[in-house]
């Protein structure tokens, strides 16, 4: 297990290198949330989910992942490429013209691994519930995973979906909230307070877990626990504490790096802290 964890951490470091290089390469994009959620996505794709990098839209028999906070696309693209969905060289085209690697995830250019567009916030939970319902109708035992920003919970549609899933016993669904307390205009508690999220989701009828999203061991343990709770009549929600910008000291913990790209100097400083573990793209 220790060696597994070390291996996952090494992948995560390389993904973080990819993220800062991608946003630097196009001088736009969202490094903060991407860096914060890197460990979670690496754990999902390299350890937790049953999935096939020979991409098929229906994903029959597979576990599916939906990214609802589409702006943290860099981390997803890197993880998809590094798990074999497409060549890592394509990461260099992020946000550039004539690319499949769009600013926000899209199916339109047929990038393998993406099943729905996201970017306009609040829609991914509904979509994931739909795919979970189809899995049930098809007697497909695959699970459905979703990730949401905490600021995204200010969208009303999230709470429509929050009400629907427990009522309809959508228990093949494991959702996660990136609870970093930051959004574009500042701390969530200042912009629009989220209140007691654990109590809120429990009140809606979800089985709520908490985890440290920047501790690989804790992520693996919690996701395994979440998987063991599926099929018991309740959807599962994981409140995942993360540091925005985790892994790059000057980006950590501040909303200022939500949607800002590093300059050349900042890139060099960031890469100094993220020694290459695999080949750069």
């Amino acid at each position: 297990m220790t060696s597994d964890i070390e291996n996952l951490e090494q992948i995560a470091t390389q993904v973080r290198r990819d993220i800062v290089r991608m946003v630097h390469g196009c001088q736009s994009g969202h490094p903060g949330g991407s860096l914060g959620c890197t460990d979670y996505l690496v754990a999902l794709y390299f350890h937790i989910m049953t999935h096939n990098s020979d991409f098929n839209m229906d994903g029959t028999g597979e576990d599916l992942f939906f990214l609802s906070n589409g702006h943290i696309s860099p981390v997803w693209y890197s993880v998809l490429a590094r798990s074999g969905y497409f060549d890592i060289s394509e990461l260099a085209t992020f946000r550039k013209i004539n690319s499949r690697v769009q600013g926000h995830p899209a199916t339109h250019e047929h990038l393998p691994g993406i099943r729905i567009a996201s970017g306009s916030l609040g829609q991914g939970l509904s979509v994931a519930i739909g795919s979970a319902l189809t899995k049930k109708l098809n007697n497909d035992n695959g699970l459905v995973f979703t990730l949401h920003g905490d600021g995204e919970l200010q969208e009303g549609q999230i709470w429509e979906a929050a009400m629907f899933a427990p009522h309809n016993k959508v228990d093949n669904l494991i959702s996660t909230i990136d609870f970093n307390g930051q959004q574009i205009d500042g701390p969530t508690e200042k912009v629009l307070s989220l209140g007691n999220l654990k109590a809120k989701w429990e009140a809606f009828g979800w089985d709520v877990l908490e985890m440290n999203g920047n501790d690989m061991s804790n992520i693996i343990t919690t996701l395994e626990l979440a998987k063991s709770k599926t099929g018991k009549g309740k959807p599962i929600m994981i409140l995942m504490q993360t540091n925005m910008g985790h892994g790059v000291d000057f980006m950590m913990g501040s909303h200022k790096w939500h949607g800002v790209a590093p300059n050349d100097e900042q890139l060099a400083a960031a890469l100094d802290q993220l020694q290459s573990t695999f080949k750069d793209y």
């Binding site: 509904s126 519930i129 739909g130 795919s131 189809t134 009303g156 549609q157 979906a161 629907f164």
Partner: peptide
């Protein structure tokens, strides 16, 4: 699937249901 008075959720669920045919 009775969605309740939640049309945004209905459209999203419908979109998700296409995944899997």
């Amino acid at each position: 699937f009775q969605i309740g008075i939640a049309e945004a959720n209905m459209i999203g669920i419908a979109a998700g249901m296409t995944i899997g045919g």
